[in-house]
Amino acid sequence: MLEHLGEKLILHVSLGSFSFSFDILTVIMSWIVIIVLVVVALILRRGLGQDIEEKPSRTQAILESLINLLKGQLTSSFSSDKLAKELFPFVSTMFMFVLVSNWLSVIPYCESPTKDLNVTLSLALLVFVMSQLLAVRMKGGMKYLKGFVEPYPFMLPLNIVSEIAKPISHSFRLFGNTFGGAILITVVSAKFAPVLVPAVLNAFYGLFVGAIQAFVFAILTVAYINVAVES
């Protein structure tokens, strides 16, 4: 159990002269996450009554409170209502994907896709690229470039570094939390206490920290996009 601690399975594929490699477990786990989310979405979708006059069903109440929660906690931080409406699906999907990924580690033989730096870094870079594109779209190219030499021209390198540091800290925060929790659980259950204690640790690192980190990831997405668009 411990001999492959901190390592992961990598699949090397070579198609003719073109060869690539990827983490097979991570990809399979993220498919599982997608399947879980789509199934949940279908169940919730079915509960949505088409008739407005009807009394809302139980699943519809769940769906509504979920959407209101996401709206109130995440996208209400956006400075413009238009942006909030536009980015609501993106931010909500980000939150739910990270949440279910983090919670997946609780199930035996499953591991979080977010335990892989590739996943968190790709999400963070996606947010980074998106925030920059939105900033260009909202402010215009010249004003966007001008934002890098504010307040003084010699701050240019500092501004660039602070922009680049955002996706790095964004991705490493999630990765470090999930991976650190997973390592801790593995080590404790292999070396000290194989029963009972891992359950508590799973509940804390898998469920509690996982939920907090998913929330933080989503709200930082909102914050980064907001800052890029505003300043």
Partner: peptide
């Protein structure tokens, strides 16, 4: 088996 942090790949 590969190292965790080193392996940025097609994933």
């Amino acid at each position: 088996w590969g190292k965790v942090v080193k392996s940025l790949n097609w994933t």
